[in-house]
Amino acid sequence: MTLSISLFQNQLKRIDSSKMFQGLVISVIIISALLIGAKTHDLPTQVITVLALLDMGITIFFAVEIVIRYLASDSKKQFFKNGWNIFDSLIVIGSLIPAGGSGVLLARLLRVFRVLRLVSMVPELRLLINALLKAIPRMGYIALLMFVIFYIYAAIGSILFSDINEFLWGDVSISLLTLFRVATFEDWTDVMYETMTVYSMSWIYYITFIFFTAFIFLNMMVGTVLEVMADEHEIERAKSHGESADGGEPASRAQIEQLQAQVLELKALITEKNKT
């Protein structure tokens, strides 16, 4: 009995790890995404019926696929320790909610999220998401500093320019929205020229603000994400080569030479102690 269960599990593992099965899952996810888009159009009744049957088939396929992955795992507890497995399970379970009655809107929304399963199925996309999630804490400090700069400039703008255009600079909260418009370069010159009619040197206010936000802080954000992505790529490379993947950086040549010198010194001390 145990042998038959083991053979069955090995067969499921081969199915789960096969490129053909992975490609089939990705294809069904793409079809599901196209199906969601098709339902937003005004279609004949016959087409809607066919799409409903196709959607039911996709839901059943995803349920079978997640069951195969669950049964193929060596440890059932370990299966749910993987965040991507939990994510896929929640999406599949949500898709099984009946689309009738008061749950129509909820069921349709959960079916939309099935498209996100493409992220969990493609390793490169998982790497990008993992890097983004790990970069969020570092980006949070940069965002906090950006908010401080935004708030200072918003207070200054509200004090100086509220009499010129109360709609744009009436208070700090409105000024923050205006500065966001400036930071995204959405017709920001119109805002600048309006204030320059009263304060001819107000261009300094906008240029310095754009310099801080668009050129410094946003580049710091990009640099943080790239740094974390480089670390993630190094971890994946270490795993693929069977090296330690504890997040440590590979030893440099100088570190290796230093370690070799320490070993030689230790060897010389041991030799000298043996002679005495």
Rank of each mutant, 00 (worst) to 15 (best):
G23C: 10
S244R: 13
L269Q: 15
L54E: 08
I216M: 04
G83N: 12
D231H: 08
V112H: 05
A52S: 13
R138Y: 06
M221I: 09
G94I: 03
K81P: 03
I68M: 12
V28C: 10
A107M: 09
V191M: 07
I26N: 09
I66H: 02
V225H: 02
I29G: 01
V28H: 03
I235M: 15
L24M: 11
V122I: 13
K77Q: 10
D88I: 13
F167P: 06
V115P: 00
V198H: 03
A254C: 02
S244E: 09
L105Q: 10
M56C: 14
D74G: 00
G83H: 07
Q258R: 12
W169M: 03
K19R: 14
M192W: 13
L226I: 14
T189H: 10
Y70K: 00
S73G: 09
K39Y: 02
I86E: 02
F79D: 05
D16H: 05
I210K: 10
S240R: 13
V67P: 02
S120D: 01
A99C: 06
S27F: 14
I5N: 13
V47Y: 15
F212I: 10
M201W: 08
H41W: 14
L145R: 01
K39L: 07
I91M: 04
S200Y: 05
L118H: 01
F161G: 00
V28T: 07
R117W: 06
F209N: 07
I31V: 11
K77N: 02
F180L: 12
Q9M: 12
L53R: 09
M139V: 08
A154G: 02
L144M: 07
V112S: 06
A135G: 05
M121D: 07
D246W: 15
T224G: 02
L266P: 01
G170K: 10
L71Q: 05
K13H: 07
T276G: 03
A52C: 06
Q78C: 06
L133H: 06
L132C: 02
L264N: 14
E234S: 06
R181A: 08
M220R: 04
T45K: 15
G103Q: 12
G83L: 06
I207S: 13
R117Q: 08
S4N: 05
R138D: 11
P250T: 09
T59C: 07
S173N: 13
R114A: 11
D88K: 01
L160A: 09
N130T: 03
L118W: 04
F211K: 05
D246C: 03
G157A: 12
G157Q: 04
V228E: 04
V225G: 00
G140L: 15
I29T: 05
I58D: 01
M229R: 13
V115K: 00
F180P: 00
K275W: 08
Y70A: 14
